[in-house]
Computed example of a mutant assay.
Amino acid sequence: MPAASIHAKPDARQIVNHPLTGYAFSFPRDFYSHNNYQVEWWYFTGNLKDAAGREYGYQCSFFRVSLAGMKALQQYQDTPSEWSNEHIYFAHMTVVDLKNGKFYFYERINRSGLGLAGAAEDRLEVWNENWKLTGEGDTRKLTAKEEENGFDLQLVPEKAPVIHGTGDDKPKWEIPEKAPNYYSFTRMKTTGKVFIDGQPVEVTGTSWMDHVFAERLLAPKQAGWDWFSLKLDNGAEVMLFRIRMQDGKYDPRSGGTLVRADGTQAHLPSEKQSVGVLKTWTSPKSDVTYPAGWKIDLPERNIALKVTPDMAGQELFLLRSVSNSYWEGSVTVEGTYEGRPVRGKGYVELVGYGGNLSATFGQ
């Protein structure tokens, strides 16, 4: 499939008014930072192979958060003036070697006061020290290395950006203007290197990118979320986000998006999806119990999928930046799509199982 052009002059196909927030998306402008929003992140996950077929996975996320109103981050305001800034930047990075059962995770926390971290508003450039995301033409370059582990990757979208919440059967939101502005590149051709214990490995595969900018992370009664990004071998992708409330129920504002092979999309409302947990796993480090296998049914789309973690131990343990642990890992998908067998790869993120996340990031 040819790569989608993403830097053409904006036209009617590239400017979309979000039906909830009223925000007018325009590319390439919205690839860049939106400093007038409370929170923003650029989030990459990928499934890769080397020449021998050995599998690897990675996650790299860059966050920009306004210090005003974020309780867990206000501690960083009491610092010398040369370090002070309106925003704090943190980043998470993981790399997994599935054949050898190795999983590494790292984080960074900085401000832009001395140029150690930042996000440009006029170009695609986001960094936290030497972890960097840049864009040139249609290509994204993603580099992160810590100790002897990391990656140096080039990513090219195979489809145009998908703006979530603009398809048929629109999602509900209690305060529409508080809904997140959220788009993705759901399938990106990926080449480059991963580094495992200092050894470079040439890899190819596919990645997924999320870019979100919003007024808040979670509402007061929300505790966390389950997020699925699944890339199927028939060219389709499925994104599901399931917001968990403090009482254990799922928020009806949860939803998702089906992206067909031709790039068209359909909203997946929470009441028209079924996600069952098949088993659980308890972390020996945090003692937190996470779901560890799922059965997903989308009856109106005639899609049924089984999602299985490629390795149980893919937990980012006790991160300072979020005062919590979370699980994010590579998964394998199998099932049926409109009656035909389908397989795939992807990532799942499980946030808030070790504690109420809105207590950390409440406003």
Rank of each mutant, 00 (worst) to 15 (best):
Ala12Tyr: 13
Phe25Ala: 03
Phe27Pro: 07
Phe27Cys: 06
Phe31Val: 01
Asn35Pro: 12
Asn36Lys: 14
Val39Cys: 01
Glu40Cys: 07
Thr45Trp: 13
Asn47Val: 03
Leu48Ala: 02
Ala52Gln: 15
Gly57Lys: 01
Gly57Asp: 02
Tyr58Asn: 06
Gln59Lys: 09
Arg64Thr: 01
Ser66Asn: 12
Ala72Met: 11
Gln75Phe: 09
Glu86Ala: 14
Val96Phe: 02
Leu98Trp: 01
Phe103Asp: 00
Phe105Lys: 10
Arg108Ile: 00
Ser112Cys: 05
Gly115Arg: 08
Ala117Asn: 03
Ala120Met: 07
Asn130Leu: 08
Trp131Phe: 12
Lys132Asp: 03
Thr134Leu: 07
Arg140Ala: 05
Leu142Arg: 08
Glu147Tyr: 06
Glu148Trp: 06
Asn149Lys: 04
Gly150His: 04
Gly150Trp: 03
Leu153Arg: 05
Asp169Val: 07
Pro171Leu: 08
Lys178Asn: 10
Lys178Val: 00
Tyr182Ala: 03
Arg187Gln: 06
Thr191Tyr: 06
Lys193Thr: 06
Phe213Ser: 07
Leu218Trp: 11
Ala219Met: 05
Pro220Cys: 01
Gly224Phe: 03
Gly224Arg: 02
Phe228Met: 02
Leu230Tyr: 07
Asp233Ala: 00
Ala236Ile: 00
Met245Cys: 04
Pro252Ser: 09
Gly255Arg: 02
Arg260Ile: 00
Asp262Asn: 15
Leu278Asn: 14
Thr282Gly: 02
Ser283Arg: 12
Val288Arg: 01
Gly293Arg: 07
Glu300Val: 01
Asp310Thr: 02
Gln314Ser: 05
Asn324Gly: 04
Glu328Trp: 13
Val331Ser: 10
Tyr337Ala: 11
Phe361Asp: 00
Gly362Pro: 02
Gln363Gly: 11
